[in-house]
């Protein structure tokens, strides 16, 4: 069993988002970077499947050297080895093309991603990789079991869940409920120091997506307080002033 887990490195969830250079660049000053929470689920699931089968779970990340602490965290959770593609992750299509190109001749049984990265939230790296490698891509999975080469998968759909079977190889993206994320223990942290981390140079890819500028949401005009004794006033305002009900 050979599993590839794609990891993005994202600003910590408490980060206050700001921009610099006339709103053209994300302000990284003082920002703490972490392993994308959904990718922790993807890795945990990969380990749960690979370990009993004597298989491997390889971490792949497209990003600069600054990401290495997060990669070490993934290794300390139990990943067998890691690959870093040495490039700025410009957009989802660029990232997927790098991963697909690296993985294409390595016969992975499964490629797992997170449901979305909590920074650029494309939620599209999984189907992009699937299409590029011409394998199925199953989004937002909440259950994954492998039995004799066939996976049984449950995935979220709008307003419910779908159950499917799929033969390997395939790509899938991890959603909450898939598992509880593993927390690295002391042994894992020690072991991670000596696990292989390969750095690979990117292939040239043109995606036709250029980030031009950023904008923060309009601040609220201020809150209008309503007495707790008169909730009917709230209903009235929602109907006649805000016109949302």
């Amino acid at each position: 069993m050979k599993i590839l887990v794609c990891m993005s490195v994202v600003p910590d969830t408490t980060t206050k988002i700001t921009f610099t250079d006339n709103n053209t660049r994300f302000n990284t000053a003082g920002v703490q970077y972490i392993m994308n929470p959904y990718d922790e689920l993807a890795l945990t699931k990969a380990l749960d499947i690979a370990e009993p089968a004597g298989g491997t779970a390889t971490i792949i990340h497209v990003g600069p050297a600054d990401s290495e602490p997060a990669i070490r965290k993934a290794l300390s959770m139990g990943a067998t080895d890691a690959v870093r593609i040495n490039a700025e992750p410009l957009d989802a299509q660029f990232v997927a093309a790098q991963i697909a190109d690296w993985a294409k001749d390595k016969a992975f049984d499964m490629i797992l991603t997170g449901r979305e990265s909590i920074d650029y939230n494309g939620g599209v790296v999984c189907p992009l990789i699937g299409a590029m490698l011409n394998i199925p891509s199953i989004q937002v999975i909440t259950k994954l079991e492998v039995n004799a080469g066939t996976a049984t998968i449950e995935r979220d759909i709008d307003g419910g869940r779908e159950i499917m079977t799929c033969t390997m190889p395939f790509a899938a993206s991890a959603q909450k409920d898939l598992c509880e994320p593993r927390i690295p223990n002391m042994r894992g942290i020690m072991a991670a120091r000596t696990k292989p981390l390969a750095v690979v140079e990117p292939v040239s890819v043109k995606t036709g997506v250029e980030y031009q500028s950023f904008e923060l949401p309009q601040p609220k005009q201020g809150v209008r307080m309503i007495s707790a004794d008169a909730p009917e006033e709230l209903i009235h305002l929602l109907r006649n002033e805000a016109k949302v009900i």
Partner: peptide
């Protein structure tokens, strides 16, 4: 940009050799 739509969008972009924007 629903669950199903997003699952398709990436694959459609690859098939059409297109630029993709979600959300």
């Amino acid at each position: 940009n629903t669950y199903c739509g997003k699952a398709m969008a990436g694959r459609v972009a690859v098939a059409l050799n297109a630029s993709l924007a979600s959300n």
